[in-house]
Design a protein around this nucleic acid. Sequence first.
DNA 1: TGGTTATTTTCCCACCTGGTTAATTACGCC
DNA 2: GGCGTAATTAACCAGGTGGGAAAATAACCA
Lengths: 129, 129
Amino acid sequence: MSIDPLSATFAALADPTRRAILARLAKGETSVTELAQPFEMSLPAVTKHLKVLERAGLITRSREAQWRPCRLAPKPLKDANAWLEHYREFWEGSFDRLEDYLADLQGQKRPARARKVPTPKKPKRGAHT
Amino acid sequence: MSIDPLSATFAALADPTRRAILARLAKGETSVTELAQPFEMSLPAVTKHLKVLERAGLITRSREAQWRPCRLAPKPLKDANAWLEHYREFWEGSFDRLEDYLADLQGQKRPARARKVPTPKKPKRGAHT
DNA sequence: TGGTTATTTTCCCACCTGGTTAATTACGCC
DNA sequence: GGCGTAATTAACCAGGTGGGAAAATAACCA
């Protein structure tokens, strides 16, 4: 599995069953059986999902007699959000040089768009000193 | 692959290489070769990453002579953020009944925590009518 | 038409994932 | 100790993913 926590978090979130589990957990701590209730899958399958969530640090588990209740843990969600936040300016419409080539898109009939592609190493053939 | 877009998005974000590609793309559209530059991996490997990102709708590709420049697309990031936002109250410290059992955690020496586990089906044995 | 550059496709590999069923562990209770 | 409930582990399968090397495309240039 992924070494870095952020990858583990996103990987854990990349499954509808696990997201549903988190949604349910946001309403309060529950047992595995309770958690498995709304799904069509077997209990072991749910256990595996919980393990993924636990490895990602998204849930913590305690022991209460023979129950292992799960509780939502905030940190990974917070970290994931922090990463996304980093791009907020982007999806909200105002960017760095992004608006530059967005504007460019509008007027892509103009020959001015020639600078769009950085042309990384084209002139390497004879002038790369 | 995942049918639902959100899963596809999170799955795409669950890889450091792909996140690095997005970070680079946030600074401006570039070619595949340029994008592959900072990584140790082969060009085909990068192509595959781009395909994952494209399937998730995180990038769009155009054609500029023999280059297929990639551009960051905002929607999936926005949607992922919207999903996370849903939990913001949670990681920021004030929740529904969450604060209930968080407070409970603090005083877990008190026998009051007996209600912590919902005890889904325990009393079924003789008094479940 | 042939050459050069950019990128993708194909085929290969090892490994993780999501699911199954069957067996096993962990408690609490009587 | 033995039963019942909660949950996990084990073994297995299909399929996806991340990587590589080599070959194939695509588009421009001369």
